[in-house]
């Protein structure tokens, strides 16, 4: 079999002049790719050096991790099952009240942050930047601050979860309100509704399912958050967990982690179902 003749060199050059990437990346592309690769490698290398990730350290740590796993087996409640269940309930309570309080507080803020409700940029933009700052701080930092301000206990945890989520909810609610269809609002206004009535009858029905589904989603997240803020003394099961780990009771720590895993998975499943039903799929 004879090979088909290659493209005539002149034709090839013509084509390449017109479409430089016709036969694959140009030398310039390759140089750019190599440079990008080098930068990424340099960043990763520097980072690995910075965190002191030596092979000996990794090997040693993995060995110790193996020991820990042995200590963790079998998980046991250490005769304090009731106490742990109560702590878990406290975690759920913190998540629930924190989420509800944040949602109630964010509802009006969300309307003020929405472009189609509050038309004054000068008022709206600072509000949204302030919310961005709240969202930029982790819930554990809020927990630390509230423990320092109002004392140890679940109340500090509730405040931390609620304040952190006011930042999240207000932004999401505002976006949901901005994404509503203008038609119903125009219709309501045309039939003589006041501004407030327009919001109540044309916008609220549109955003309610979205808002409810956000609330459920953040309840899931907050159960996770509420399970760790006990580490800094803000109530819930995190306190029990960090005490067990600090005291080397690894079998009890493993039991608590398993309790958490099961609880979070069950809540996620239920909430996922509910959310799908609310959005109507």
């Amino acid at each position: 079999m004879t090979r088909r003749p290659a493209l005539a060199p002149e034709l090839r050059d013509d084509l390449l002049r017109e479409r430089p990437r016709l036969f694959g990346p140009t030398p310039g592309d390759w140089a750019l790719r190599a440079a990008a690769g080098l930068v990424i490698l340099a960043v990763l290398g520097f980072s690995l050096w910075r965190v002191d990730a030596t092979p000996e350290r990794i090997a040693e740590g993995i060995g110790r991790l193996g020991f820990l796993l042995q200590f963790m087996w079998p998980p046991t409640a250490g005769g304090e099952l009731w106490r742990l269940v109560m702590a878990l309930l406290e975690t759920l309570a913190i998540a629930l009240i924190g989420t509800v309080a944040a949602a109630v507080a964010s509802y009006p803020i969300g309307f003020l942050g929405a472009r189609n409700i509050l038309r004054m940029r000068l008022l709206r933009l600072p509000l949204r930047r302030a919310l961005d700052v709240i969202r930029g701080v982790d819930v554990l930092i809020f927990a630390l601050i509230f423990v320092a301000a109002v004392g140890l206990g679940p109340f500090a945890g509730i405040l931390a979860v609620a304040v952190n989520d006011v930042g999240n909810f207000s932004k999401l609610f505002a976006e949901a309100i901005e994404n509503t269809d203008d038609g119903p609002a125009e219709g309501a206004a045309a039939s003589g509704c006041s501004r407030l009535e327009t919001i109540r009858f044309a916008i609220v029905p549109q955003v309610m399912p979205v808002i409810l589904s956000h609330i459920l989603y953040f309840f899931e997240r907050n159960v996770r958050a509420a399970s760790i803020i006990g580490i800094v003394g803000a109530g819930g099961i995190g306190f029990e967990l960090s005490e067990r780990i600090r005291g080397n009771y690894w079998d009890e720590a493993a039991f608590i982690i398993l309790m958490l895993l099961v609880t979070v998975m069950v809540i996620d499943r239920i909430s996922h179902r509910l959310r799908l039903r609310i959005i109507g799929r």
């Binding site: 002191d52 350290r57 996770r224 895993l261």
Partner: peptide, 23 residues
């Protein structure tokens, strides 16, 4: 499902205090 900070609590024990456990 397990929060980062719980992993961190465990890894600080195994790999020592410092950013490596955090990574």
């Amino acid at each position: 499902t397990v929060p980062e900070i719980v992993y961190a609590l465990i890894f600080v024990y195994a790999f020592g205090i410092g950013p490596f456990a955090g990574v």
